[in-house]
Amino acid sequence: MAYSVHSSHGQQTADLTIRFLQATARRIAAAEAWYRRAQSRRIIAALSPEQMKDIGYPVVDDIASLEVEAGLMTKLQSMR
């Protein structure tokens, strides 16, 4: 009776190692992307309105808003 010299255990271990490294690489890439977005937001928040206009970023006045009467929220709360 002949026994196989090759084992599938070594291949399974290699597959697990590769998947672990790929998952780790994805997590590192996601963390780097999050850091770059946060850094960009900090930089944009520090810009003056003139600088924001220069780069074409919407000025706060251009963002749609809704004006509400002073007592409306109190009135709506009392209607519950």
Rank of each mutant, 00 (worst) to 15 (best):
E69Q: 06
E69S: 06
S65E: 13
T17D: 03
A30C: 10
A31I: 07
F20A: 09
Y35Q: 12
S8C: 11
Y35T: 07
A70E: 13
G10T: 05
A33I: 01
L21H: 06
A45C: 13
Q12F: 06
I18Y: 04
Y3A: 09
E50I: 01
A64H: 09
A70C: 04
A30Q: 12
E50L: 07
S8V: 12
A30E: 07
R42D: 14
V59K: 01
R19W: 02
Q39C: 11
I44Y: 08
T13F: 07
D62N: 10
T17R: 12
F20M: 07
Q51E: 14
S4H: 10
W34N: 14
K53P: 00
E32C: 10
D62T: 03
E67Q: 15
G56Y: 00
E69L: 14
Q39E: 15
Q51I: 05
S40K: 12
A31G: 11
S48P: 01
K53W: 10
S8G: 04
T24F: 13
A46Q: 04
I43F: 07
D54K: 06
A70R: 15
L47D: 02
D15W: 04
F20K: 05
Q39R: 15
I18T: 08
V59I: 09
A70V: 08
Y3E: 03
R41N: 13
P58L: 02
Q22H: 10
Q12E: 08
I63H: 04
I43G: 01
I55G: 01
I43V: 08
F20H: 02
R41T: 03
D15R: 10
L21Q: 14
K53F: 11
T13D: 06
Q11N: 08
D61P: 00
T17P: 00
A25F: 03
A31H: 13
I44G: 00
R42W: 07
R19F: 03
Q39I: 03
Q11K: 06
T24A: 12
S7D: 06
D54I: 02
